[in-house]
């Protein structure tokens, strides 16, 4: 059980320098995503075949792709899409995983049922499960979201369950219970403070992984479908033009790497 005061989570002030840098990177990307869609006069699929693979200019700040579509629009849409998916996947899987984790640590029947379920889910690598579920409805954002959340809640469950088990058997919780405090109080004072830092770390890694998974699926053509903009999909689409327009290909690659890097930094120390 971690009683380390510095890792009590919460609050930007308590973050380490690298965590703050990570947060800044993510905020900049978020501002870019919002600002890009707001500033750019072009729509997502508006083609201009007379101006394909243009370098950055005053008309097209980030240049154009192979169909003459504005890269600024497409990049900001794609970054926005990644962030949205990351966010809802983190929220969903964290809520499910934490609730079930605490519940399983407290009750034995739930624990054994969950144990078998988790064991089976862990028998296949996450990406393979997501790939197969994505195959049922190709290009569906909803299915992607459900599949990724299904894979990700397990991690929260395992960590939260292990920590909660420790806390439940700790002298501190035992003594609180003996003094007559109720279940909610025990959760508030003992369990939550112990799991909160780990949940934060897991959430940051989870956000990165969700974004990565969506990009991976896009990259093998079974994720989000054209003409929508998605970072992995854009990478394959633009790959053939690497020599004519390296700046265009570099954009989605850089965006993915920055997002993942930002989340990794934000997560702080690996658990």
């Amino acid at each position: 059980m971690s009683l380390d005061r510095s890792s009590r989570g919460g609050g930007i002030m308590k973050m380490t320098l690298s965590q703050k840098i990570g947060l800044v990177i993510l905020l900049i990307l978020l501002v870019f995503a919002f600002g890009g869609t707001w500033v750019s006069p072009y729509s997502l699929s508006q083609q201009d075949l007379n101006a394909i693979l243009q370098p950055p200019s005053t008309r097209h700040w980030l240049g154009t792709d192979q169909f003459g579509r504005s890269m600024l629009t497409r990049m900001s849409e794609a970054v926005m899409l990644s962030f949205s998916l990351g966010l809802i996947c983190v929220i969903t899987s964290a809520i499910i995983g934490v609730t079930l984790g605490v519940w399983a640590a407290w009750g034995e029947t739930v624990d054994s049922i969950m144990g078998v379920l988790v064991n089976i889910l862990l028998a296949l690598p996450g990406l393979v499960i997501v790939l197969m579920l994505a195959a049922i409805a190709p290009g569906s954002f909803l299915v992607l979201y459900l599949a990724i959340s299904l894979v990700q809640w397990v991690e929260y469950f395992r960590v939260v369950r292990a920590i909660t088990k420790n806390v439940i058997h700790s002298p501190a919780r035992q003594s609180t219970k003996m003094m007559g405090f109720g279940v909610w109080y025990q959760f508030k004072r003992h369990i939550w403070p112990s799991i909160a830092p780990s949940i934060f770390t897991l959430a940051a890694f989870g956000g990165a992984n969700a974004i990565l998974t969506m990009a991976s699926l896009g990259f093998v053509y079974v994720g989000i479908q054209p003409p929508l903009a998605e970072l992995g999909l854009m990478t394959v689409e633009l790959f053939p033009y690497y020599s004519e327009a390296p700046w265009v290909l570099a954009q989605p690659l850089l965006a993915i790497a920055l997002m993942v890097f930002g989340f990794h930094l934000l997560a702080g120390k690996r658990t």
């Binding site: 990565l212 991976s216 992995g232 990478t235 690659l253 993915i256 790497a257 890097f261 990794h264």
Partner: peptide
């Protein structure tokens, strides 16, 4: 850390 931030396909 920099390499770790890059997805394997990147």
């Amino acid at each position: 850390s920099l390499i770790r931030a890059m997805p394997v396909f990147v």
